[in-house]
Design a protein around this nucleic acid. Structure first.
Length: 244
DNA sequence: GCCCAGGTGGGTA
DNA sequence: TACCCACATGGG
């Protein structure tokens, strides 16, 4: 029992139903997002690294350049000179840093898995995740994106949108699950069935909401599909109050 | 011109 | 642990 007298499993189940209600509203508004926009698992992994702190439109140009030069393949990427790589991915921003990150990723892939993503993904989820987190340039979001969207493994991807949206839904920046990346990841994973298709769509829908509605500066609460489920708009935090 | 975009690593207190 | 900064391009 918790201090409030509610058994933990009851609270978790209730929060799980809440998260599913949020999911259904988002799906109803935005529809299936069709993530990840890539043709191969390796292209997903490359895109996951290139999209760090950058708009996807920029990444598309970099991916197209790599594709045009036959570099969307592990062995070719491994063999490419870093300066060459940097020049091709220039539109994705941070090109020197990201060229190094792509290199360290494929070097890891060959050192540990014979260059095969399939071998990486054949391991238990948390083991594969720990390995990816050991690669220079791959942090938790990039690791989870690769595992979920390239590997089809049931890990939940947390990003800036996820954190912003959840902090507004709860209207409590001090909520324990907002403390760090892993706490927020566990918040979803401990309350939802470990279904890769659900995690895939859920994260993509949070991005859709974060981009168009639950924006950083000025959220469009009056147009939000989560009205009624969100304390931020309900309890006077948001512009929705002024709008109604 | 300014802000923001599907983060991460390194340094400092 | 908790900030702060570098990393860089492109679109609104």
């Amino acid at each position: 029992m918790t201090a409030a007298g509610v058994p933990a499993e009851v609270r978790l189940a209730a929060e799980g139903r809440y998260l599913l209600a949020v999911y259904r509203r988002l799906l109803g508004r935005f529809g299936p997002q069709g993530w990840w926009p890539a043709r191969t698992p390796f292209e997903v992994a490359v895109g996951a690294i290139l999209t760090q702190a950058v708009a996807w439109a920029n990444v598309e140009k970099a991916i197209a350049a790599l594709e045009a030069h036959g570099l969307l393949e592990p062995a070719a990427l491994l063999a490419a000179p870093p300066e060459r790589l940097a020049e091709l991915i220039r539109p994705a921003g941070y090109f020197n840093a990201k060229a190094r990150k792509l290199k360290s990723f494929v070097e890891f892939l060959f050192a540990r898995h014979d260059g095969s993503l399939e071998r990486l993904f054949a391991q238990p989820l948390e083991r594969a995740r720990r390995e990816l987190l050991g690669v220079w340039g791959i942090g938790p979001e990039t690791a989870d994106s690769i595992l979920l969207y390239a590997g089809g493994l049931p890990t939940f991807v947390v990003d800036a949108y996820t954190r912003r949206i959840l902090s507004r839904l709860w209207a409590d920046p001090a909520a324990p699950f907002l403390r760090d990346y892993d706490a927020l990841r566990r918040f979803f994973m401990e309350r939802l069935v470990p279904d890769p298709a659900l995690f895939n769509e859920y994260h993509a829908l949070l991005v859709a909401l974060g981009k168009g509605v639950c924006r950083k500066g000025r959220p469009r609460c009056a147009d939000c599909p989560l009205l009624g489920l969100c304390r931020f708009a309900h309890e006077g935090g948001g512009p929705a109050v002024a709008a109604r």
